[in-house]
């Protein structure tokens, strides 16, 4: 015998101080915030209160460019595509959605291809205010 159930519970996740600052900048200014660790020089995005590499809390906030290059990607049929995007020269790497225009074939993707951030027209302080990164058309 099986008891069928669907687990649905309202939940409020705290973005935290840095997370709220990141989401606010995204919503109000279409700016992507990251950070560079003043101790180990690791760069990270989104903005964090601590370094994910060395645990230091001594980080310098960075405004990152809305353009980047493709590091890796995966196409999940029925769910869309995802990518790792390096923001700026030697900048941090962000995992987000990849938007592939109809004119570009998946087999044509290559590491290093330029991509541009695509922002929502109705931002609400959510990671989807950045809708994804668009492959530059041929």
């Amino acid at each position: 015998m099986i008891r069928e159930e669907k687990i649905q519970i309202p939940f409020n996740f705290a973005a935290g101080t840095s997370g709220s600052r990141f989401l606010t900048a995204l919503r109000d200014s279409q700016v992507i915030l990251g950070a560079k660790c003043n101790v180990c020089t690791h760069v990270t995005v989104p903005l964090k209160s601590f370094c994910p590499s060395c645990c230091s809390d001594d980080l310098a906030e960075m405004e990152l460019p809305a353009k980047g290059r493709l590091i890796s990607w995966t196409d999940c049929p029925g769910r869309g595509a995802f990518a790792l995007i390096q923001l700026g020269d030697k900048g941090p790497i962000l995992l987000h959605r990849l938007i592939i225009p109809p004119s570009v074939m998946l087999s044509e993707l290559n590491p290093g291809m330029p991509v541009t951030a695509h922002f929502s027209d109705s931002p609400k302080g959510h990671i989807s205010d950045l809708q994804g990164f668009v492959i530059s058309e041929k």
């Binding site: 997370g19 990607w73 995992l95 990671i127």
Partner: peptide, 21 residues
């Protein structure tokens, strides 16, 4: 839960990104 869950990223997505790299 703030940056990845809302995008629909799961372990298979992460494996695909690693394999492609």
């Amino acid at each position: 839960p703030i940056y990845l869950q809302p995008l629909g990223v799961d372990f298979l997505t992460c494996a695909g990104l690693q394999a492609q790299l």
